[in-house]
Design a protein around this nucleic acid. Structure first.
Length: 261
DNA sequence: CTGCCCCTGTAA
DNA sequence: TTACAGGGGCAG
């Protein structure tokens, strides 16, 4: 489910639930999520500690405690939300933070691909929601890319936060063929892509934060109407040509062959 | 670069 | 039954 906008919203939810709280106990209900660290070790380091801060770093969420730090990655299907009673957690909950106010924050993850580990969140690239994401820096970085721009955008080490949906939407909005290498794109077109990334993510952050404030969180596919993502064979909203799909780096890329060159 | 893996759910 | 899923790490 989550790309940067959703992680930002989930991070806010976790921050509100954890602010000023002490974690009485952490229960890791699926061992793999902290591998290669041992569940008992992680639980012991967290238990009894006061929450100092919750921050998003790229697509990771870092929870700083008084004397320990842990980070969470939601991967495909992870979610964090508070519940009134730890005993009433859903079957798909992989970890549960029991709090000193009697409530709990759960890490719910049906596919179980998500991660929870001790230590600071791994280093991520420039955050496209922050001021540091300037057109100049983006042009300098992307202009060096030799591989396909879509794959390049998904690599979190340079620009951190774009995933499969918003990368496709930003490239559509900028009118750029996802197979092009960054190094072959003009400064003007890379600046256009920079603007598209900021616009696409900015819009999504707003709707994601609204959606996650409601009980039940986000409903599937309600965020926005993609122009190309998931629309193989359907007409492009701009030129009416059929949206095409192909595989890039093991995932689906959607694009309009008319608008994206 | 591609392909496979992690795991479960859902839809065709 | 197969294909696919908004992520990412790894091997070849």
């Amino acid at each position: 489910m989550p790309e940067l906008p959703e992680v930002e919203a989930v991070s806010s939810v976790a921050r509100r639930a954890l602010a000023g709280r002490t974690v009485v106990a952490l229960r890791i209900l699926r061992k793999r999520i902290c591998a290669p660290q041992r569940p008992a070790t992680v639980e012991r380091h967290v238990a009894g500690r006061r929450v100092v801060a919750v921050e998003r770093r790229g697509k990771s969420i870092e929870i700083q405690l008084d004397g320990a730090t842990l980070w969470i990655h939601l991967r495909m299907t992870g979610n964090l939300y508070p519940i009134a009673d730890a005993r009433l957690r859903a079957h798909s909950v992989t970890a549960c933070f029991e709090l000193d106010n009697g409530r709990a924050l759960v890490f719910d993850d049906p596919r179980g691909l998500g991660v929870l580990r001790l230590g600071p969140a791994p280093p991520a690239g420039i955050d496209p929601l922050r001021d540091e994401f300037t057109a100049e820096r983006f042009v300098a970085l992307a202009g060096r890319g030799r591989g396909a721009i879509k794959t390049w955008l998904l690599d979190q080490r340079r620009v951190a936060g774009l995933g499969n949906i918003y990368a496709a939407e930003a490239l559509f909005q900028a009118g750029i063929d996802p197979r092009r290498a960054g190094a072959t794109l003009s400064k003007t077109r890379l600046e256009r892509l920079h603007r598209a990334i900021v616009a696409v993510l900015g819009d999504a952050v707003e709707s994601a934060s609204l959606a996650y404030q409601r009980p039940g969180g986000l409903a599937e596919g309600e965020l926005f109407d993609p122009a190309v993502y998931g629309r193989e064979g359907l007409p492009c909203p701009r030129c009416r040509r059929r949206v095409r799909r192909f595989s890039q780096g093991g995932r689906s890329t959607y694009f309009c062959p008319g608008c994206q060159r």
